[in-house]
Design a binder for these strands. Structure first.
Length: 593
RNA sequence: GCGCCAGUAGCUCAGCUGGAUAGAGCAACGCCCUUCUAAGGCGUGGGUCAGGGGUUCGAAUCCCUUCUGGCGUGCCA
């Protein structure tokens, strides 16, 4: 909001000074406070074009900028940066605006009601959701919330691959377990079958409900029945895992239904009409290499059944047919070979493939006792979303997943996450929120009630730490827009950490409630209340709760014992460890040199 | 072989469209609870931004190249 103001000023100045313009200058927030609140490189960018030196041009521009009453200081520094310090009055005004906006702070019309479809998780219905699915769920849900906040009409969708080969194998696996359960000798459990314990649980469930009724059916009916039952069971399982993470989907799309509706045949004939199929080795191929894929792909196998690509193409066509203008597929790392195939088909069918975007979430490496855990769904060796939930809970998991950028691998040490849950940055953020509410509660006890006239007292906020807080909050709306556009949700946790940090710092330095100075107290209470609001808005978007009070240390984590060092130990013991450690560190230093 | 992603502090990772002395959390060390929750604050130490070229006023960021790691490259999904 302030940036625009400065840019506006600059363009007026460029005009007034009759400068040649290439529109390549920008306004940024310098890292260091010594360089003001905002800085612009305009003089450096335009100097050459206007045949002058950067510093000379800077002084001309600065002179004009100084006339703006919102700027309290305009400096020239370094090679020609112009550093601008914003007046306290402007910050105070903005704080008031944020207060008035309330829950709508950060809400915008940026997306212009554009219809967006976010497809994520879409796990095979053959087992429980794993840790990568958990990452996808956290990411997709947060992105959806953020996009909605900035004016997109976004929907969350889960595509269920409930047809095809792997579902047959699931049914067969269940049947074997069921027979085993009923005392039959099934020999060695086949390698290709699903080995996870959930298959046994599933068989138990069937056994208790149906006994051996299903096993007595003719083979075709039997497998159909087992399939149906298993799919429903696992669907519910997955849904409940997602529910624990507070992730809900707007649409569940079934592959089986698409097939029933004849979409497979439709896609095949569309592609044939577009002259991009041919027959080879008894199979039907798609000339995907003509549309940017590495090689051609089989659509219909020699045995006459379609490969997975066909229903997938059909599914993506429905996205277009349903009128979405932006379609985002969130995929796992093992699926990036999938992108050119689907894009090729979309292009071949003359749809605008630029509307379809792919986000690849990189893998999650699990570490247990310092060793990487190999995950394999077939062998049932995988850490599930539920395991993660039990170990660290929803808030920590979601925060943790969102913190990383999508294309960076994520090393997740389960033990560490469990053991050190008290040390997790999520508590740092939540604590800031809880602390504020604690102060507010305390103030209430002292008889403070918000009054309309308080808003005038905001002028009393003049401390640098107060300005820092306001400044950080002003960035929130533009941040959300930028996240929605870049799909980089990891910038939100970073922001929350920063805002929480600024608050903690403020808390340490200034006392909010001062009974001797009522006006200032009222102003500060307002300030922190607004900070709490922004923290909560941001945490809500991430799906992380913003508690009003923190549970006592040691009770917060999954395990009751806290690893935090005992801060209460006084003099003697700390001194001892202190000196002991000191000697080791000095040793280290000397050996280093 | 080809394609995608990554390589930044001891560890896990940020670093927005190239910007001024490279940051956070954790770990280490030293201070700070007679003051609103110490799950906090202040301070110290810790870096050849994988290596090498290039582009320019200016590069962790852009281009080329080498090395290392992960993944993909099925008539599996």
């Amino acid at each position: 909001m302030i940036k625009e103001l400065i840019l506006e000023d600059l363009s007026k100045i460029v005009e007034a000074l009759k400068l040649e313009d290439n529109n390549r200058y920008s306004v940024e927030e310098p890292k260091s406070n010594e360089h003001g609140d905002f800085s612009t490189n305009i003089a450096m960018v335009l100097a050459k074009l206007n045949k002058t030196s950067p510093r000379e041009l800077a002084s001309k521009i600065a002179e004009k900028l100084e006339k703006n009453k919102h700027f309290s200081k305009v400096d020239i520094a370094g090679p020609g940066f112009i550093n601008i310090t914003i007046s306290q009055a402007l910050y105070q005004d903005i704080l008031l605006e944020i207060f008035i906006a309330g829950d709508d702070f950060g809400t915008s019309e940026h997306g212009d009601g554009k219809m967006v479809l976010l497809e994520f998780v879409s796990a095979n219905p053959t087992g429980p959701l794993n840790i990568v699915n958990a990452r996808a769920a956290s990411y997709g849900d947060a992105l959806c919330k953020i996009m909605r906040k900035v004016g997109f009409k976004a929907e969350r969708e889960f595509y269920i691959n409930d047809a095809g080969n792997q579902v047959d194998i699931l049914a067969e696996s269940v049947e074997l377990r069921l027979r085993e359960l009923r005392g039959e000798d099934i020999g060695e459990f086949p390698f290709e079958a699903y080995h996870g314990d959930y298959v046994i649980e599933l068989a138990k469930e069937i056994n208790s409900l149906e006994g051996n009724r299903i096993l007595l059916m003719p083979e075709k009916d039997r497998l159909e029945k087992l399939k149906e039952f298993s799919l429903q069971y696992i669907h519910n399982l997955q849904k409940s895992s997602l529910a624990k993470f507070d992730v809900e989907f707007d649409n569940w799309v079934s592959e089986k239904n698409l097939r029933k509706q004849g979409m497979v045949e439709e896609v095949l004939s569309y592609l044939a009409e577009a002259h991009c199929t041919y027959e080879k080795d008894d199979a039907i191929w798609f000339k995907s290499s003509e549309y940017g894929d590495d090689k051609d792909r089989v659509l219909l196998k020699a045995d006459g059944t379609p490969t997975y690509i066909v229903p997938d193409i059909a599914y993506h066509l429905t996205k277009y047919q349903r009128g979405f203008e932006v379609m985002i597929d969130v995929l796992g790392p093992d699926h990036h070979g999938y992108i050119p195939r689907i894009s090729a088909a979309i292009e071949a069918l003359k749809y605008d493939h630029s509307k379809l975007q792919f986000i690849i979430l990189q893998q999650v490496n699990l570490f247990e006792q310092g060793e990487k855990v190999k995950m394999s769904k077939r062998l049932g060796k995988l850490v599930t979303m539920d395991d993660l939930y039990r170990a660290v809970g929803k808030d920590v998991s979601r925060f943790f997943f969102l913190q990383r950028s999508t294309n960076s691998h994520l090393n997740f040490d389960l033990e560490l996450a469990t053991k050190e849950s008290n040390e997790n940055p999520v508590y740092y953020c939540q604590y800031a929120h809880a602390r504020i509410h604690s102060i507010l509660k305390n103030a209430k006890k002292l008889g403070w009630k918000p009054r309309k006239s308080d808003l005038k007292s905001l002028k009393l906020l003049i401390e640098p730490e107060e300005m820092e807080l306001i400044k950080k909050m002003t960035r929130f709306p533009e941040l959300l827009i930028s996240i929605a556009e870049s799909r980089e949700t990891h910038r939100l946790p970073t922001y929350v950490m920063e805002l929480a940090g600024l608050f903690h710092k403020y808390y340490g330095k200034h006392k909010v409630v001062d009974e001797k100075n009522e006006a200032l107290t009222r102003a500060r209470l307002h300030l922190i209340k607004i900070v709490a609001k922004v923290l909560k808005l941001a945490l809500d978007l991430m799906g992380v709760s913003a508690p009003e009070e923190m549970k006592q240390k040691g009770k917060a984590g999954a395990k009751s014992t806290t690893t935090r060092k005992k801060t209460t130990t006084k003099a003697s013991s700390t001194k001892k460890t202190g000196t002991a450690k000191k000697s080791t560190t000095t040793k280290k230093k000397t050996t280093k040199k």
